[in-house]
């Protein structure tokens, strides 16, 4: 996307990322030409529905590709080119520079090891002495709002609630002082009240340390509230890049507009959410040309001819021939 110019302060740049799986004879396309960047201290959202490829894109930043997938393009995370990197380089990247927080904290920690071990593991692997690593772990737990860290480090994951364990996972993600955090639906499994607390935590860390964050979510309201910029994905492609502020107030791509219209709102008029015909598609199922055209009320033959190029529309970059043509 044209907006993805490389900046010197970028902690993540993705350019022309393509991915396909399956046998070479009948490949299954997963991603097509994904461009995005995350600057230092910036929170960038990646929103879309199931199968849009948002998690695949986020994982690609760590060199986590599906088994057997063929990948091309360029992915630079914290100064390391990820595609084609050897295991040692990837291990170093994951250990020191880039951390990931997933939706389910229980899948991210070893259930039979104490929480303290989880937190000191990455530090010990870097050669930090045991005692110092332990002190750092206590510090981190305090920082993420766990009461009585001295007791907490000796407890097991099952002794924590989901929200508290997600704090532990975030503490672990921060233990190495990463340049970039990849947060894949980190609050989706939590209550709204706990979500707010976890978001407040991530946000204060971003401000204090200048950590860049790629925030993957299906929640438009959340993305609009916390992200500097937001990329909207549909069927393996980015269809719009816009600011958090304009995501809800001035969506340009028909798909973004459809998502906004379909989301029930807590404020303003109680207009009923407007359904979008059909269901979300993956890239493999999508029609030729614009992937959204079979669900788009403004689509015509021109949309079938080719994948629309990205063009500027106000503050946004949109892959559509007729941005903002669909009424909200």
């Amino acid at each position: 996307m044209s907006a993805a110019e490389h900046g010197p302060d970028d902690v993540l740049t993705v350019r022309g990322l393509r991915m396909e799986a399956g046998p070479p004879g009948s490949p299954v396309p997963l991603l097509d030409g994904v461009d995005l960047r995350v600057g230092r201290g910036e929170t960038v959202g990646l929103v879309g529905e199931s199968g849009s490829g948002k998690s695949l894109t986020a994982r690609a930043a760590l060199g986590l590709f599906p088994a057997g997938a063929r990948v091309s393009g360029a992915v630079t995370a914290a100064g390391t080119e990820v595609i084609g990197a050897d295991r040692a380089a990837l291990r170093g990247l994951r250990r020191h520079r880039v951390s990931m927080v997933f939706q389910d904290p229980r899948a991210a920690v070893n259930p039979v090891r104490r929480v303290g071990d989880h937190l000191t593991e990455a530090l010990r692997a870097r050669g930090v002495p045991r005692r110092e690593a332990r002190d750092r772990a206590l510090d981190l737990l305090e920082r993420v709002g766990i009461r009585d860290p001295r007791t907490a480090v000796r407890r097991f994951p099952h002794e924590f609630s989901g929200g508290m364990l997600q704090r532990v996972v975030i503490a672990g993600a921060l233990s190495t002082g990463p340049d970039l955090i990849l947060a894949d639906e980190p609050t989706t499994a939590l209550d709204v009240t706990t979500q707010a607390e976890v978001i407040a935590l991530l946000d204060s860390l971003r401000r204090e340390r200048g950590t860049g964050m790629l925030f993957v979510t299906h929640d438009l309201d959340l993305a609009a509230a916390i992200c500097d910029r937001v990329h909207v994905m549909y069927a393996g492609r980015i269809v719009e890049e816009t600011t958090g502020a304009e995501l809800l107030s001035a969506p340009a791509h028909p798909y973004t507009r459809a998502l906004v219209a379909a989301s029930p709102s807590l404020h303003g008029d109680r207009g009923a959410p407007v359904p979008v015909a059909g269901r979300p598609r993956s890239l493999a199922e999508a029609p030729s040309g614009c992937s959204f055209r079979d669900r788009c009320p403004a689509a015509d033959d021109a949309c079938a001819a080719a994948v629309p190029a990205v063009r500027r529309h106000g503050g946004a970059a949109v892959a559509c021939l007729r941005p903002a043509a669909v009424a909200l």
Partner: peptide, 13 residues
Amino acid sequence: SVPSPGWDPGRPA
């Protein structure tokens, strides 16, 4: 706790 424009995530706490 519900995110909205100008949201302060520290407020629910």
